[in-house]
Design a binder for these strands. Structure first.
Length: 571
RNA sequence: CGGGGCGUGGCUCAGCCUGGUAGAGCACCUGGUUCGGGACCAGGGGGUCGGAGGUUCAAAUCCUCUCGCCCCGACCA
């Protein structure tokens, strides 16, 4: 392609709405434009990248024996009502009515549609396993779209679904996808981690997320040199034992006027945070819960939801007062009537702790769990960096990360609710065991920019760059330069190299700035002075390294460098 | 949804507090000079100041409402 004929509207300055690097650079580089909050148009360069990524995804899935479908994005309400998710999805689902006033929606995901095909068509275990996939647009009315392409309301997802007759089959399909995803992200040039994750609204028994470590990410991942890695929502750790303080051996009220926070009590009573009980009141449905964690720990709401099997929310101030007779800051588990008490394991077996007295401006010291209050124990705390890995006891790391893929063992959740059954080898009717697997295509693109850029612009991994290389006509008025560049352009194209020719009548500085911004991995400079000596410059975008090569060797050089491997591209 | 911020030529912003002729840089068009890291000179085109209502002799500016966008908290690829 010729730059003069491709629409690449680069911007000198970053639009005010962009904050994260990928958003800024994709706008400035002329890749994307925003249509509305969380809705973007992909311009020709971005479309090239999207095609590169989907080509890799297709290639890997097809090689695995998965079959590509194309399902509708527009769904009738019925199938979502059958699975129960018409309600569950709430305002995240784009809903509309057709001309006959029937409820419809835009697909957020396609378990229901695929399950409806499966239940109508799959009859026998002999037809299994099946792996079905599509690369298609998803619509989710996110509460808060943000960061350019990182969280949007319309996006492209590769979603695949496996159907097996039993759980062993699901394990195999799941493992295949796990390995497949690793190959896909490797080929896309991403550095990622696979972490244990919670399944959220998808339901199911086991899931892994594929995470790219980046500051722009919205998740936190916990990982260890030994290979342990988990989403912070799911992560566990070992803790050092804490020395209990000496105390009255029986709960004793202490006046603590105006002292509300854990830190207040540390200063006021000289009791360390690890010897305090943090008491939180939550509402779960129409009941109130008292949730306890150690004073220096944080409650992990995701774990609480897992334990409860549903969403709980923090109680409002007036609810707290009604339930406990005191305000937040003076709450505790001793002598609270009629409340289910859920405690983190870290409080089990401790003695002489300090907590609120359920009376404003008073605390209790000498509180011993079990003796002074009953509790159910669960893992409810947020892991903190530096705590010991529960596998190898090394200190854990925590880093921000962006989720680029997620695989779930769904089990029979959808096949049961939607009646997708087959006869097994014993002739018994059993629900199909399903898995579902998703890749966010735009997120791969955005993650690549987040982890591949410098002050001048984007640095694409070679495998997903919009072009393999750029020929820069440095001196556009020099007829010989133009002629030779055109000749090289044609030769490289014939060789099968995807090359962009910057044939614009611009000054060199403008072209260099644009080239760096757009981020094509290699730039070949055709300049008057060097060309007179029979040389051109081969410039590597990532390093800025310039190699002079003989014009006569250019095609061979490019061919060996750009068409070589076929294996994983290097970022 | 709660909290904060911003809407002024295509882009970045000034002007608003203290009402009185709508501005700058970049981009764009014409001519000229430049030509290896976002050139310079001269001339030119382009804006219902997000929208509606109000106050006023007079509103980009003050008031009310509304829409949009961004950011911070609970969700997800």
């Amino acid at each position: 392609m010729r730059w003069s004929q491709v629409f690449i509207p680069t911007l000198r300055e970053a639009p005010a709405e962009a904050e994260v690097p990928s958003h800024i650079l994709l706008l400035r580089g002329g890749y994307i434009r925003q249509l509305a909050s969380g809705i973007y148009s992909y311009l020709p360069l971005a479309q090239q990248v999207m095609l590169k990524i989907t080509r890799i995804i297709r290639d890997e899935l097809d090689r695995m024996g998965a079959q590509e479908f194309a399902l509708p994005a527009l769904h009738p309400a019925e199938i979502w009502q059958e699975s129960g998710r018409w309600e569950v999805m709430g305002p995240n689902m784009f809903r509309l009515k057709d001309r006959s006033d029937r409820d419809m929606c835009l697909g957020m995901t396609h378990e229901e549609v695929f399950a409806s095909i499966a239940r109508n068509e799959l009859r026998s275990y002999r037809q299994l396993p099946q792996i079905w996939y599509q690369i298609q647009t998803k619509f989710r009315d996110e509460p808060r779209p943000k960061s350019g392409l990182l969280r949007v309301r319309q996006f492209t997802m590769k979603d695949s679904y496996s159907f097996d007759v039993d759980w062993e089959g699901l394990d195999r399909s799941y493992r295949k996808h796990y390995d497949l995803y690793c190959r896909i992200y490797d080929r896309c040039g991403l550095r990622y981690r696979v972490v244990e994750a919670s399944s959220g609204m998808m339901g199911g028994s086991q899931s892994h997320e594929f995470m790219v470590l980046t500051e722009a990410g919205e998740d936190m991942v916990v990982y260890c040199a030994c290979g342990y890695a988990a989403n912070l929502e799911k992560a566990t750790s070992e803790q050092e034992p804490v020395q209990d303080e000496a105390g009255p051996e029986t709960p004793r009220p202490v006046a603590t006027p105006g002292q509300k926070t854990i830190d207040d009590i540390v200063r006021f009573l000289g009791v360390s945070a690890s010897c305090q009980i943090k008491s939180l009141i939550y509402r779960f449905g129409d009941q109130s819960l008292l949730v306890l964690v150690r004073g220096d720990h944080q409650l992990n709401e995701a774990k609480l939801h897992e334990v409860l099997g549903g969403e709980a929310r923090p109680a409002r101030p007036e609810e707290i007062l009604a339930v406990a007779g005191a305000d937040a800051g003076s709450l505790g588990p001793v002598k609270v009537a009629g409340l289910r008490i859920l405690s983190d394991h870290a409080l089990e077996g401790r003695r002489n702790l300090t907590c609120g007295a359920n009376r404003n401006d008073f605390h209790l010291s000498g509180v011993t769990p079990g003796r002074d209050y009953p509790a159910e124990y669960f893992d409810l705390r947020v892991v903190q960096a530096g705590e010991a890995c529960s596998r190898c006891r090394s200190p854990l790391n925590i880093h921000k990360a962006l989720e680029v893929g997620h695989i779930f063992k769904l089990g029979t959740k959808y096949s049961e609710s939607m009646g997708a059954t087959v006869l097994n080898s014993q002739g018994r009717e059993v629900p199909v065991v399903m898995g579902s697997y998703g890749i966010g295509v735009e997120r791969i693109l955005a993650a690549a920019v987040e982890s591949g850029h410098d002050d001048d612009g984007i640095i694409w991994p070679r495998s997903i760059a919009p072009f393999d290389c750029l020929i820069c006509v440095v001196n556009a008025k020099d007829g010989t330069v133009v002629q030779e560049a055109e000749k090289a352009y044609r030769k490289l194209q014939e060789l099968g190299v995807e090359v962009l020719l910057d044939d614009r009548k611009e000054r060199p500085g403008v072209k260099f700035k644009d080239a760096d911004l757009v981020g094509i991995p290699f730039r070949i400079n055709f300049g008057s002075r060097k060309l007179a000596l029979g040389k051109v410059e081969w410039v590597e975008r990532a390093t800025g390294k310039i190699t002079e090569i003989d014009l006569a060797d250019l095609v061979a050089h490019a061919g060996s460098l750009l068409l070589a491997d076929g294996g994983p591209a290097v970022a």
